[in-house]
Design a protein around this nucleic acid. Structure first.
Lengths: 250, 250
DNA sequence: CGCGCCGTTGATATTATTCAAGACCAGTGG
DNA sequence: CCACTGGTCTTGAATAATATCAACGGCGCG
C-alpha cells in the first residue's frame, strides 16, 4: 500500500476553516456531482442555492425515516448509508455513499423520506433545497438533465442491488460488494486494492441480505483462499481476477 | 424485432396517424400518469409529442437490454415485467407493471437501457420520446415535477423490493407480493381480492428471489391455511388480515 | 389427440442462520 | 500501567430454510 493511498483511506479530509460557503466551482467533486457539464455562469446559479456545508458526526442521521423532504444533499467528505425499514423494524441498507454522491433521492417521489441516511464517520454535505433546485433546473436544461441522470443512476444502482439480492449466493454477494467498492474508490482517485471499510460486518450483512456471521466467515474464507488480505476493516484485494470470476461461478 | 419496429412496419402511411394518436385528455389513465394535475393546454403540449399507441404481443420485448434509450412508455392496457440480468445470464425481475405505469425509467441514467421490458399479455403503450419530454417539461413546471415524482416513486418501489429481498422470509415475500398486487388492482378499480396472475410461478420466483417450487409450495400452503384460494393463476384472497399479519410475523 | 409448457409434490442436499463461546481491540478510569 | 468494559469480530456445532433433483399430473393449444 502506498503512503498516499493509506493516508487517503485512513484519514478524513482536512477542511479549511475559512470558507463558510461551499462553492461548486472550486469543489473537487465538481465533475462527479450536479454541476457536471454546466457553463460557469450556470454553476454560479446553482451555487447560489447551495447552502453552506453541514457536518454530520459518526452515527448521526442526516435525515430520518418519515422526515419531510425538503432538500437533496451532496456528499463532500466522508461516507453514509441509506437504510429502509419494515413496519416491524427490520432494516435493509439500500446503499453506501461516498464523496460526490447525491443523498435523499428517495424523497423525490413523495413529500416524505421513505428512508434514513446516517453518517459512517465524520462527514460533510452540501444542502440543496429541492424546490429551488427545480426552479433553477427549469432555467438551465443541462442541470435538469443532470438531475434526471442522477435519479436514473440511482434506479440503475438499485437494480444492480436487486439482482445481487435476488440471484446471487453469499460468496458472490461479498465479492461483488468488494469489487464495487474498489471501483468506486478508484474513480475517486484512491487505491482500488487497498481500502478501509467504514461499516461493521453487520452493516455489510444488512446491505447484502446476510447475517454478520456469514459475512465474517466469508472474509476469513476469501483470505484463506488468497483472494484478499483482511485485518479488521482494512482490506487488501490480492487477486482481483479470481474475485471477479467468483461472481457467476454458480 | 421489437414491438416498435414491427408497428412501424405494419402501419402503412395511408393510415392517418392522427386517427391512431393517443390523446392524453381522453385517456382513462390520465390521473395515474404523466398528465396528472396539468392544465388542459399543457396536456395538449404533452399530447403533441406522445406517439401513437404501440401494441406489444405476449412475450414480446418493448425494448431489450442494451438498447439505446430514446423514450419512456406509458402502459395503457395489459401488463409488463422489467428484468435485469447478470453477465452470466441469471435474471432478476425488478418490477411488474400495470396500466398507468411508466416504463423505461432505467434508461434515464445512461444512454442505454440496463434492463429489458416484456409484455405478459397482449398490451398497449404510449411512446413518449424522452428528449422531447425534457423539452416540454422545461416549459411546463408541473410536468417536470411529475417526471421527478415518477422517477422518485420508482426509487421508492425499488427500495421496498430491496427490503423484501434482503430481509424477508419466503412466506413473507409471497404475502407481500399478493398484497401489493391487491392494492394496485384496487387502485385501478378492480377487485382487491379476486384477480388473475399474469405471470408464471417461475416469474414470481424471479421477482421474489425464490425458486418456482418454493413459490408453488407456498401457494399450496396459503390455500391449505385458508388465507387464499388458488386455481392455477386465479387467486382469491380470503383472509387479508392474516395475510398482512404474516408479514413481520417472525 | 398429443405435445409442450406449467404446476404440484416428495425426497434429499445444500446453504445460510441460529445459538453459543471466546478473542480482539480501543477507549477509560483506577 | 494495567485492568476493565463494551462493541466488534471470529469460529464451531446444531438447526432451519430453501434449493435441487425427480416424477408426474394437468391444461391449453395446435
Amino acid at each position: 500500500m502506498t503512503a498516499i493511498a493509506r493516508a487517503a483511506a485512513e484519514f478524513p479530509r482536512l477542511v479549511s476553516l475559512d470558507a463558510l460557503r461551499t462553492h461548486c466551482a472550486d469543489c473537487s467533486m465538481r465533475e462527479l456531482c450536479l454541476p457536471l457539464g454546466l457553463a460557469p455562469s450556470d454553476v454560479d446559479a446553482l451555487d447560489s442555492i447551495v447552502q453552506k456545508r453541514v457536518k454530520v458526526r459518526k452515527g448521526e442521521p442526516l435525515f430520518r425515516h418519515g422526515a419531510p423532504f425538503t432538500a437533496l444533499f451532496a456528499v463532500r467528505v466522508g461516507s453514509f448509508k441509506t437504510t429502509v425499514v419494515t413496519d416491524d423494524g427490520r432494516e435493509q441498507i439500500a446503499g453506501y455513499h461516498l464523496p460526490g454522491d447525491i443523498l435523499g433521492l428517495d424523497g423525490v417521489g413523495s413529500e416524505q423520506h421513505a428512508s434514513e441516511v446516517t453518517a459512517l464517520e465524520l462527514s460533510e454535505v452540501c444542502t440543496i433545497p429541492f424546490a429551488q433546485l427545480e426552479d433553477i433546473a427549469h432555467q438551465v436544461p443541462t442541470l435538469q438533465h443532470n438531475l434526471h441522470r442522477i435519479l436514473g443512476r440511482e434506479i440503475n444502482a438499485d437494480h444492480r442491488l436487486l439482482l445481487l439480492l435476488g440471484s446471487m449466493r453469499a460468496e458472490e454477494r461479498l465479492a461483488a460488494f468488494l469489487l464495487s467498492l474498489s471501483e468506486r474508490y478508484a474513480r475517486l482517485g484512491y487505491s482500488p486494492t487497498d481500502f478501509v471499510l467504514r461499516m461493521t460486518r453487520e452493516e455489510i450483512g444488512r446491505y447484502l441480505g446476510l447475517k454478520l456471521e456469514t459475512v465474517s466467515r466469508l472474509f476469513s474464507r476469501f483470505a484463506a483462499e488468497g483472494l484478499i488480505k483482511v485485518r479488521g476493516r482494512t482490506v487488501q484485494i490480492v487477486d482481483m481476477v479470481m474475485l471477479k470470476q467468483l461472481i457467476g461461478g454458480h
